[in-house]
Simulated scan of single mutants.
Amino acid sequence: MSAGSTHLVIYSVSIVIVAWVGGLIPLYFRGKRKVIHLFISFGAGVLLAAAFLHMIPDAARYIGSRLGLPILLGFLTLYILEKFIMTHPCPSEHCDYHRVGVSAFIGLSLHSLITGMALGAGILVPKLGFVVFLAVVLHKLPASLSLSSLFIKEHYTNARLFAYLTAFSLMVPLGAVSTYFFFENTSTTALGYLIAFSAGTFLHVAADDLLPEVHQHSHERVSRLISFFAGLFVLWLVHLLH
């Protein structure tokens, strides 16, 4: 088994576990919203830094100045998806953007499938895989938490909730595996376009889904801002070490 395939397996299994952890939080850790919001703020910093410090520069090495369009397409793909499905990973019980139940499951699953494509592409680029994996993990947990919270609010049975959560947890690995093996032997140009597209999706997730959390609730803004910059700082350190 190649190093890339090994990383693919390890990252995929880890993400499934993280998805389950996120889905179980609403069942066993009610009332811990402050910690969750800090985690989301940290994740926003990680996703932004992953896109700007790692993915976009790597894409530029392969496709040069042509990276603008695929970044924009990646951003718009998730924007349009969320506007039609109207769901995003938000832990608030009073979020106006959510549709409940199966609609949320479909929207977040498609979202996760695209995120998995970013992971698969990242693994194909030396030193980028772990950065993308970290960003995906920090986004996957609140997404799972959101989905589980919606199902609980609709009084789904635990068996039904676990079935949906299992299917949802497999979306990122599905996207990652299919992308990895499809692009494994492709040209660096195609890979560059895919990485740039993935960077655009990361920018949308950070800007539209996660960054608004940094600004909510004035009494927690300072702590959330610190958490956000901590996420940026961690990925900046990773950038320096690479």
Rank of each mutant, 00 (worst) to 15 (best):
M1K: 15
S2P: 14
A3L: 12
S5Q: 15
T6P: 08
I10L: 12
I10V: 13
V13M: 06
I17D: 01
I17S: 05
V21F: 06
I25A: 00
P26E: 00
R30P: 05
K32W: 11
K32S: 12
K32Q: 11
K34S: 14
V35C: 10
I36D: 09
G43C: 07
G45S: 13
L47S: 07
L47A: 07
L48A: 10
L48F: 14
A49V: 08
A50S: 15
D58L: 09
R61Y: 12
I63H: 01
G64V: 06
P70G: 09
L72S: 13
L73C: 12
L76A: 07
L78W: 03
I80M: 08
L81N: 05
E82H: 10
K83F: 11
I85P: 01
M86Y: 10
E93M: 07
C95T: 10
Y97E: 14
H98S: 09
S103V: 15
I114S: 04
T115I: 02
G116V: 03
M117L: 13
L119S: 02
G120H: 07
A121W: 04
L124N: 04
P126L: 03
K127N: 09
G129S: 03
V131A: 05
V132F: 00
L134S: 03
V136I: 14
H139D: 00
S144L: 09
L145N: 10
L145K: 08
S146H: 15
S146E: 15
L147Y: 08
S148Y: 14
K153Q: 15
E154Q: 14
N158V: 14
A159G: 14
L161M: 14
L165V: 11
L165Y: 12
A167M: 15
F168M: 08
S169V: 10
M171I: 08
V172Q: 00
V172W: 00
V177N: 05
S178N: 03
S178P: 05
T179I: 05
Y180C: 03
F181Q: 03
F182T: 10
F183Q: 05
N185V: 02
T186P: 02
A190W: 11
G192R: 00
I195K: 04
A196C: 08
F197S: 01
L203W: 09
L210H: 01
S223D: 05
I226K: 00
F229I: 05
F229Q: 03
G231I: 01
H242R: 12
